[in-house]
Nucleic acid binder design. Sequence first.
DNA 1: CGCGACGTTGATTTGCCTCAACGATTGTGG
DNA 2: CCACAATCGTTGAGGCAAATCAACGTCGCG
Lengths: 193, 193
Amino acid sequence: MDKSFLIFREYITHSNDFSSEELDLILSKMEHKRVPKKTHLLSIGEICDFEAFVLKGIGISYFIHENGSKVILSFASESWWLSDIESFHRHTPSKMCIETIEEMELLCLSHKDKEELLQSIPKLERMYRLMLQNHIVNYQQRLLANIAYSGKERYQAFIEKYPDVMQRVPQHLIASYLGITAEFLSRIRADKN
Amino acid sequence: MDKSFLIFREYITHSNDFSSEELDLILSKMEHKRVPKKTHLLSIGEICDFEAFVLKGIGISYFIHENGSKVILSFASESWWLSDIESFHRHTPSKMCIETIEEMELLCLSHKDKEELLQSIPKLERMYRLMLQNHIVNYQQRLLANIAYSGKERYQAFIEKYPDVMQRVPQHLIASYLGITAEFLSRIRADKN
DNA sequence: CGCGACGTTGATTTGCCTCAACGATTGTGG
DNA sequence: CCACAATCGTTGAGGCAAATCAACGTCGCG
């Protein structure tokens, strides 16, 4: 367990200073999991009991609309988190699904272990707060984009911002993330300008 | 300063247990401000140095699209916060505007004072974290609504969720918040079913 | 009073969706 | 190892939700 999980060590020490004892304590609570591709990690109605840091692979969280269509809430690849914040913290039945696209390697933290960690390492609260602030900024910008920009503009911004995700997930999921249909995204891409 | 700011005391003790000394310390850092209606609190390019808790009145934060139209990011009435999270925490020029609609009464916290408070009352980190988690859940649901529901459905959900805001702000701002034009909102309202 | 902010309504346009059909690829079981 | 079914992307025709542009009535207010 020494030099593995390097990605996680980098992530967590990037804007924080934890001692190596603290880091080890944190890591000791995080369960290393390997999950095959196209696997459900959370279904609607279940209570989410993991906050998963992505070491490898890519996964999605999404809502299912009444008419049956998926709405991708987020993609999570290396160094991102995968969880249903609402369900995880309020212990309420989840309204969303989480599943893998590629095979994934995760570091999973349960609610109980997270609370224990926060008790023993108060500094962690701060790290989470900063992380959440960044999330909010992301959501604000995405909401703005969905309201004020065309499908084409959103697509162009997306490939600019997440070129790797673009390569690794099927187009129709990206369309869903952007709030357009797969057909329309296909037409956008066919446009030469 | 004893029994005033009751709204704030209720808010902050609602899901947390602060001693009355701690509460007083917090309140001592928060500057009580009275702001007339239609006043700019933050303009694009400025660095936001306040996190304002709303004691009274209602305000908005919004982006300005290239074509000049406003996109309302949020309404803030009693017991809500008003700030540009990104600018406030990263000390970067703001991309949004904040202004009052009605006359407002605010409790303002500067970045420096916030950091000091967080130093002396570590529990505060937790409160902020929980608050941000709720914000994120809100943004997720709003994003979902904008992608998967019609203008009419979003409008109906809005008056259900924020009946008071509905009464207190001009319709065209609500239209902007919902991601539709003022004209279209007017037509929705004219529909009898 | 007169001007600006606000809401409404009509005519027209358009960005995007829906439905449907069709190759190409992948994968899976017999 | 082939056959067949999914899954994925593309393309066409047609339709609709919502935008745009424009005109007009009302109200509050300096």
